[in-house]
């Protein structure tokens, strides 16, 4: 039923990550984990997949001697999200 939907985004955690990053300039790993309720391991895996597709950027640095991972959405990611929402809207429109 969802043949036109981007398979990379059509997964709960990845969609949650992209939806979250669409609304902020950038967010730390711990913030994303808290808001999505995901485990650190699963979140890392899904972030890597989104990064490989160039949907997000991941910057690693240190803050007060602690490692800090900051994520932000790329233009490719924004376009993919827009396309996903448009396809979803079209599907809902057809089935109402």
């Amino acid at each position: 039923m969802f043949e036109n939907l981007d398979p990379l985004l059509h997964q709960q955690l990845r969609l949650a990550i992209i939806s979250l990053l669409m609304n902020v300039r950038e967010a730390e790993f711990t913030y994303i984990r808290e808001k999505t309720g995901a485990t650190a391991g699963n979140l890392s895996v899904q972030l890597s997949k989104l990064k490989e597709a160039n949907y997000i950027e991941i910057n690693k640095s240190f803050k007060d001697n602690y490692p800090m991972t900051v994520c932000s959405i790329t233009d490719t990611g924004k376009a993919a999200f827009d396309t996903y929402v448009a396809a979803l809207t079209k599907y809902i429109g057809k089935h109402q």
């Binding site: 969609l15 902020v24 996903y84």
Partner: peptide
């Protein structure tokens, strides 16, 4: 899908 998108909008 819509619920997840909405939840993340609300959360941020």
């Amino acid at each position: 899908s819509l619920r997840i998108i909405q939840d993340m909008i609300d959360a941020t």
